[in-house]
């Protein structure tokens, strides 16, 4: 064996990355999430092709998926910043209650929705401020706050539903839940709202100063601070965004339930949205994430329960398939993108 002179040791053997390699580097996580969705769909569809090719089969899917999409895409900001928000289900519930309280006191649906979103943002600010300025771990703080806010909502509601069935015929209601018939597939407005929301999140995350700074803070908070980023403000900001999304979810959930609000509204979304987020390819360690991945993750986790039944599995298979998909996609994401340090 000959000793290589220092000069040859210095030669860089890495090649110029091509366009597709760069594309995969930038979008690999979102692509993985998309492929996961297609595979899960194809797996179900193969078991019952006739059912899965009927457009009308997806009506219920499109009706129920928007809330998960909206919450999951907003949570990307929280996870990427290095925090965790377990309090959003309580904000969904509180927002729905606030919205219905406004509606039954005579506020039209659209202004009530706008006020509710302001309220959600305010609640998000409070949660963020407690986590950040109280210097508490966001896992513990938001876990406690979730119980606390749910508790207050229950006390205020005295365990009663709030309903306003007469507002079902208003323009505001149609704005959120009206449907477009496309070849037998009924696309509800709130699905379109969820798509617009996702685009908004995407632009905010990838092209806005706020989103970029969220990623910087999550990747290396010390660096971000040294470079003059107000990391506390960014951290509060992600909770504001999460609160805003939760409020929008609250408004939509009430309307998809024919203008009835239950004090337990939102509770079911905690694990669904987090599962969708991680199936969607946003890693747990912070700094990087993907909005479109979260979108496809939301589609995947929403498809599993109904899809499994549609494919002929008995209902009790659902959790098994759910778990399997989560674990397998986690492994796939591992191969797709190790952490750059």
């Amino acid at each position: 064996m000959t000793t290589a002179p220092a000069q040859t040791a210095a030669v860089d053997k890495r090649g110029t990355p091509g366009f597709w390699r760069m594309f995969y580097r930038r979008n690999g996580r979102a692509l993985n999430a998309f492929v996961t969705f297609v595979l899960v769909w194809a797996f179900f569809a193969a078991n019952n092709p006739t059912l899965f090719l009927i457009p009308a089969y997806y009506n219920a899917f499109l009706f129920s998926v928007p809330a998960t999409i909206i919450m999951t895409t907003a949570l990307v900001f929280v996870i990427v910043s290095g925090e965790l928000d377990l309090a959003f289900p309580s904000v969904i519930g509180a927002a729905g209650g606030l919205f219905m309280t406004l509606v039954i006191s005579g506020v039209p649906i659209l202004p009530a929705a706008a006020l509710t979103m302001l309220g959600g943002a305010a609640l998000g600010t409070a949660i963020g401020a407690i986590v950040v300025y109280g210097k508490i771990s966001s896992l513990v703080a938001t876990l406690g706050l979730n119980f606390f806010i749910v508790g207050i909502v229950n006390l205020l509601a005295q365990g009663k539903n709030i309903e306003s069935r007469e507002s079902v015929s208003t323009f505001g209601y149609a704005f959120f839940t009206g449907k477009w018939d496309i070849f037998g597939l009924q696309v509800p407005n709130h699905f379109l709202i969820a798509v617009v929301w996702t685009v908004l999140c995407y632009v905010l995350f990838r092209y806005h100063r706020f989103g970029i700074r969220v990623q910087m803070v999550g990747d290396n908070p010390d660096s971000a601070r040294q470079m003059g980023i107000d990391i506390d403000r960014i951290r509060v900001g992600v909770f504001v965004w999460s609160g805003l999304a939760a409020a929008l979810c609250g408004v939509i959930l009430v309307q998809t339930a024919n203008m009835v609000w239950f004090p337990t509204s939102g509770k079911a979304y905690l694990l669904i949205a987090l599962a969708a987020l991680f199936v969607g390819g946003t890693p747990t360690w912070g700094g990087v994430g993907t909005i479109w991945g979260a979108f496809f993750g939301a589609l995947t986790v929403t498809l599993i329960p109904s899809g499994a039944v549609g494919a002929g599995f008995a209902g009790f298979w659902t959790d098994f398939i759910f778990g399997l998909v989560i674990i397998l996609t986690m492994v796939a994401h591992r191969f797709g993108g190790a952490r750059a340090r």
Partner: peptide
């Protein structure tokens, strides 16, 4: 500074 203040995943 010594630690260069970089975000390695970006």
């Amino acid at each position: 500074f010594q630690d260069r203040a970089l975000a390695p995943q970006h």
